[in-house]
Design a binder for these strands. Structure first.
Length: 487
DNA sequence: CTGGGGATGGGGCCC
DNA sequence: TGGGCCCCATCCCCA
């Protein structure tokens, strides 16, 4: 009895089409490596065990290890993670999920990282059968795809950020369509004219090639296309039915996670997001001596980098149909149901999930997700750019008001309020404020000693961010450098 | 306790 | 594609 392990897709169900896959077999002490290309399978190598190469050994060892893990999973041995899908519980190993899925990687790295407690997650965005297929793939490398499940599997894989599965699904659909076209061309009687269900002419990925689908109706690929379209219509119904806003589908929260609260950009979720933000801000602003601030920041940044790096091209891209059935591609956040038009907006949005805050204020160490927020903060808090008396709220100018410093904070007071409050001893020169930023940046001599001694004043030698925010003492820092500096 | 205003965060979209 | 602006929601502080 041999052990067959596949690296790729051994069978493609009713597509009857083989992709390039590698199959190796340990049989009677022999190592066999085969390669399927098209419908043919070529045997690349059959070697007796004494002639195994190190690569053979490595492959056999890996397959054996994976098989052992799969066995443990099926026997529920050492499983420290349970996933609930449609009421069905799947037991798994955290480290396996972590290594296979970007989604679980994020989830597990945020959650009980060091704890020995069992982690569980539940989903209702895909069904249990689909997750079983994906879990089988994770533990065996075998993906049981067919024309009726490929869409669901691909969707789930996209959600879970399993790039291999996405790629396989894309290849499957592509090959499936090619075969269908071939079949239809061979059978001209099956080709009926129907222009009403034209496939999309615009797609960001090559999952469906519009050119290959022209004038082939009621064929396999159109059935597949109908399926795709039905899903999109359902999606759109959700969009229009629950809320006038595009983000309406967020009402159906896709996941319920015990340790992580996944937000949607609706009002309620903003509240949730702000709670998280507030907690983060507290960490960042209150007692920084009690926490490893740099470590936290570095961790967030690293997570973000990993996330951006691991984002497969298709993740987050969803097709939404306009009223005229023209496709409208949007980028879907892998962590919530929010969709955006532009990739850059998705990247910006992802910061609210990763906690990444790349823009630190050098005056108060507060960090921001966006440069504009930092700029706004700096101007209002540290430069007193608003020409309004903080006390009486009246408009003040350089003539009838002064800038008052309290620590790193600056604000304006009118002369009347200054005299009334006795701020005389801490009054700064009225010429600072907007002008001061230039002085700070360029190292211009200032009359105000307070500013020269302020901890956030930059040296001339200090590197400035390249972007326009640099003139506000804004510096985009590399967290790894910060970390090194601290050590 | 409550309302107002400042500070902040996030989305859409233009340049 | 990134920067920047505008708008809105939310939180928090203070009177």
């Amino acid at each position: 009895m041999g052990v067959w392990v596949t690296q790729g897709i051994p069978e493609l169900g009713d597509a009857k089409y083989f992709l390039n896959v590698r199959v190796f077999c340990v049989l009677d002490g022999r190592f066999a490596l085969k390669r399927h290309s098209g419908a043919d399978a070529a045997e690349l190598a059959i070697r007796p065990v004494e002639k195994w190469t190190s690569a053979d050994m490595s492959a056999v060892h890996q397959s054996g290890l994976l098989k052992q893990l799969d066995l443990q999973r099926k026997q529920e041995l050492f499983c420290d993670c349970s996933v609930l899908v449609e009421g069905q519980v799947f037991h798994a190993h955290r480290n396996v999920l972590y290594g296979s899925s970007g989604y679980f990687k994020m989830l597990l790295s945020q959650g009980a990282k060091d704890s020995l407690e069992s982690v569980s997650a539940s989903f209702d965005v895909f069904n249990a059968d689909v997750f079983a297929i994906i879990l089988d793939f994770i533990y065996s490398g075998q993906l049981e795809l067919n024309s009726s499940n490929v869409i669901e599997v691909m969707s789930a894989a996209s959600y879970l950020q399993i790039t291999n599965v996405i790629s396989y699904c894309r290849a499957f659909i592509k090959s499936f369509l090619e075969i269908s076209i071939k079949e239809d061309h061979e059978n001209p009687y099956s080709c009926l004219s129907n222009n009403s269900t034209s496939p999309p002419q615009d797609s960001n990925d090559d999952t469906i090639e519009p050119s290959s689908m022209c004038d082939v109706s009621m064929s396999s690929q159109n059935r597949l296309w109908d399926k795709l379209k039905n899903e999109q219509e359902e999606l759109q119904e959700e969009l229009s039915g629950s809320s006038p806003q595009p983000s309406g589908l967020q009402q159906n929260s896709p996941t319920k996670l015990e340790d992580e609260e996944y937000s949607s950009p609706t009002v309620s979720s903003r509240r949730r997001g702000n709670r998280r933000r507030t907690a983060t801000n507290r960490l960042l602003t209150e007692d920084t001596s009690l926490i490893d601030l740099q470590g936290l920041v570095s961790h967030c940044s690293q997570k973000a980098d990993e996330l951006y790096a691991n984002l497969p091209s298709i993740v987050g891209v969803v097709g939404v149909f306009n009223k005229d059935c023209s496709p409208s591609m949007r980028y879907k956040c892998p962590f919530c149901m929010h969709t955006v038009k532009r990739k850059a907006d998705l990247k910006r949005h992802l910061r609210c999930h990763t906690g990444e805050r790349p823009y630190p204020c050098q005056a108060c160490s507060k960090r921001f997700t966006r440069l504009e927020h930092l700029r706004s903060h700096f101007e209002t808090i540290h430069q007193a750019s608003k020409l309004v008396c903080r006390k009486c709220k009246r408009h003040v100018t350089e003539v009838n008001g002064r800038v008052v410093s309290e620590g790193t904070r600056k604000y304006r007071l009118c002369d009347a309020c200054i005299q009334e409050s006795g701020y005389g001893d801490i009054i700064s020169d009225g010429t600072e404020g907007n002008d001061n930023k230039e002085g700070l940046m360029l190292g211009v001599e200032e009359d105000v000693t307070a500013d020269k001694q302020a901890p956030w004043v930059m040296d001339e030698d200090e590197d400035l961010a390249e972007d326009s925010g640099a003139d506000l003492i804004i510096q985009e820092v590399d967290d790894s450098d910060e970390e090194a500096t601290q050590k």
